[in-house]
Amino acid sequence: MRRVRVPVHRRAGVPGRVVAVCGALLLLAGCGQGTTDDGESGLPGAPTGVTAAAGSATSVHVMWNAVSSGPGVRGYEVYRGAEKVKDVPASEHMADITRLSPATAYVFTVRARDTEGRLGPRSREARATTPTAVAADRSAPTRPLDPRGRTVGSQAVQLSWSPARDDRRVVSYDVYQGAAKIHSVGGNQTATVVTGLRPGTRYSFTVRARDAADNLSPASAPVRLTTAPGSDDGRGTAPTSFHAATHRTDGAYYLDLDWVAPRTDGVVTEYRIQLDGQSATSLVWGADAPRGKASYSFYLGREAGVRHRVRLRARLPDGTWGGYSAERTVITGQP
């Protein structure tokens, strides 16, 4: 069953479609639930897209999206519960948190600090549980085989590989760009999308497997890819065939959206909808997330002739946000 982060009711006559009941002004405030990139009172915004995944029995890999709105960002602070555990420069958007306890659940948040030293609000919580430690395990996993990839426009690439083997189990895979670790995914995942790349640039990626004892495999064979020239704003990872319309029910206007999920190596379960340039709401599915065409509808208000702009983007299976769809304009009361 579909699950959204806002109160919902079913639109009469359309089985399975979900409708947000908060009004347009409330939507722009996130209905009390959404997270936006916009700072408040001149502070940097809360980082979005925060994910956490165990890298070993004693480490967790935390990632987030850059804060692009508000004042300039000098760096980020990563918190484990209430305790700050890492300072990260503004150019980086990930951190390995080490010296943790095995078989333990942790909660992480991230805050941005601006060039004047002021801290923005905390991000949403990201949770991860470290696996049980394995005594006297000195055997590293085998190297990941058959690495392959494709460019996704000018700013992203999609990588995949065959699973590595370990005498216990593989806990995570680390992705390297040259000699630098740039990404990490769980041991049950053998594909990812790397975003934030430069257009028209040649890259070399390798993958290494890690087990619970922090043994690291040899690197896979390199995957060499060149991103497309120009800028496509990440449209290669954006939802496609995006349409928007309005309808009127019981004296109120609703915005009806439909789109096709972006092509990924996993299932997209979450979308962020932007209305009139601001984050409106997050739409989250459970196990029944649509793999092709999806639809959503929410309340706009009772006034006819109001113009709205809308677009959306998907949270990719690796936890990063894809590109925005094309923007559509609708006017309440007009077809």
Rank of each mutant, 00 (worst) to 15 (best):
94 M>S: 12
115 T>Y: 02
248 R>Q: 10
188 N>H: 14
63 M>G: 03
319 G>A: 11
124 R>L: 11
241 S>V: 04
109 T>W: 04
176 Y>T: 11
186 G>H: 15
81 G>V: 02
165 R>H: 08
229 P>Y: 08
313 R>P: 09
298 F>V: 10
58 T>H: 01
183 H>Q: 08
190 T>I: 13
232 D>S: 10
257 L>G: 01
143 R>E: 01
180 A>E: 12
215 N>A: 12
168 R>E: 12
196 G>M: 11
306 V>C: 03
140 A>S: 09
238 A>T: 11
67 V>G: 01
295 S>N: 06
125 E>Y: 07
220 S>F: 05
47 P>K: 04
99 R>Q: 07
132 T>K: 12
95 A>Y: 00
76 Y>M: 02
278 Q>M: 01
133 A>T: 15
281 T>C: 07
48 T>F: 00
269 T>R: 13
180 A>H: 13
187 G>P: 09
234 G>H: 04
60 V>I: 10
233 D>G: 14
274 Q>H: 10
117 G>M: 15
72 G>M: 08
204 S>H: 06
26 L>K: 04
265 D>W: 03
273 I>A: 04
28 L>N: 02
67 V>M: 06
219 A>K: 01
327 E>T: 11
48 T>L: 05
320 T>Y: 05
222 P>I: 06
142 T>I: 00
291 R>I: 02
288 D>E: 09
17 R>S: 06
135 A>I: 15
190 T>E: 09
284 V>W: 01
298 F>I: 08
28 L>P: 00
321 W>E: 03
309 R>Q: 15
14 V>N: 01
193 V>P: 04
316 L>W: 15
183 H>C: 02
24 A>G: 06
153 G>N: 13
249 T>A: 03
17 R>Y: 03
225 L>Q: 15
103 A>G: 02
208 R>G: 04
320 T>K: 10
48 T>W: 00
320 T>I: 07
302 R>Y: 15
86 K>R: 10
93 H>M: 06
241 S>E: 12
75 G>H: 07
299 Y>F: 14
225 L>G: 09
53 A>Q: 15
174 D>R: 14
73 V>W: 00
286 G>D: 10
124 R>E: 10
318 D>A: 06
113 R>K: 15
263 R>E: 13
5 R>Y: 05
241 S>Q: 14
163 P>D: 07
251 G>Y: 04
56 S>F: 01
86 K>Q: 09
28 L>S: 07
176 Y>P: 06
276 D>P: 01
171 V>T: 15
163 P>M: 09
109 T>N: 09
206 T>D: 06
253 Y>T: 06
284 V>Y: 03
113 R>Y: 03
97 I>G: 02
206 T>G: 10
27 L>H: 07
138 R>P: 00
151 T>Q: 15
136 A>G: 08
225 L>N: 09
310 V>C: 13
